[in-house]
């Protein structure tokens, strides 16, 4: 809070508290101290009950589960290393920290397809793997590395890029997406001892965007214009 905002907020609060006290003195003329004590007890019991209720509420429906990505726990701190290490790995399926967004298969008639890409697909890493056989199909899998806001992993909420195959042209289009997230933060009286107190609270709230990865598995004999320098070939050897 800024140095100007603080006194204003305090002033508003003072007014609120004055009002509350006025209210208290009005209420008190109708209430004996016994009733007040009972109300205090009921209030406290209600609050304790709320903890119990919160504990037993079923956890389905939450958009963000504690761990939404596949393949084991990728901590927020490891997001970047994970993203980089993918490139050296060959087996995407067993790669920890990668979340499979979508999988599509397109049939091709031609033996050779010229793969074309929509303009500016820069935020994807596109990997190409040639299959053992010629089955006339292109498998397109899209993956995502972990996306974090603070401590929360929201990778699962990301929409996969749109993949269209038409007239020998493969179009991978990013989807414009707006995510609204509601996250819980521990009270500052708790977070103080997690090394994230009120003073450096802001640090705990940074978001980190991961990467979208696209894996194309193409028939063995398919020709691809190797001139596309954003393509990365995964060689089986």
């Amino acid at each position: 809070m800024s140095i100007i905002g603080l006194p204003i907020a305090v002033a508003i609060l003072v007014v609120v508290i004055m009002l509350a006290r006025k209210l208290g003195t009005i209420v008190v003329t109708f209430m004996s101290w016994r009733k007040s004590a009972i109300i205090a007890g009921v209030y406290l019991l209600g609050l304790i009950l709320s903890v119990v209720i919160a504990a037993v509420l079923p956890n389905h429906g939450f958009g963000l589960m504690e761990r939404s990505h596949t393949g084991g726990g990728i901590q927020k701190g490891n997001v970047w290393t994970t993203s980089y290490s993918i490139r050296t790995q060959k087996d995407f399926e067993s790669q920890p920290g990668l979340y499979l967004n979508s999988r599509q298969t397109f049939k091709i008639d031609q033996r050779a397809v010229k793969l074309g890409f929509a303009p500016n697909p820069g935020h994807f890493q596109i990997y190409v793997e040639q299959k053992e056989a010629d089955d006339g199909k292109i498998d397109v899998s899209t993956y995502s590395t972990p996306f974090y806001v603070g401590e929360t992993d929201y990778t699962k909420l990301l929409q996969p890029p749109k993949v269209i195959f038409q007239d020998g042209l493969l179009v991978i289009e990013p989807v414009q997406q707006t995510l609204t997230l509601k996250l819980f933060k521990s009270n500052f009286t708790q977070s103080q001892f997690e090394g994230k107190n009120a003073v450096n609270l802001q640090n705990g709230l940074s978001s980190s965007f991961g990467w979208s990865e696209v894996l194309l598995r193409v028939p063995k004999s398919m020709k691809i214009d190797k001139g596309q320098n954003y393509l990365q070939y995964l060689d089986k050897d």
Partner: peptide, 8 residues
């Protein structure tokens, strides 16, 4: 105290 009636 205002919380107390005369009886209290």
């Amino acid at each position: 105290p205002t919380a107390f009636s005369l009886d209290d």
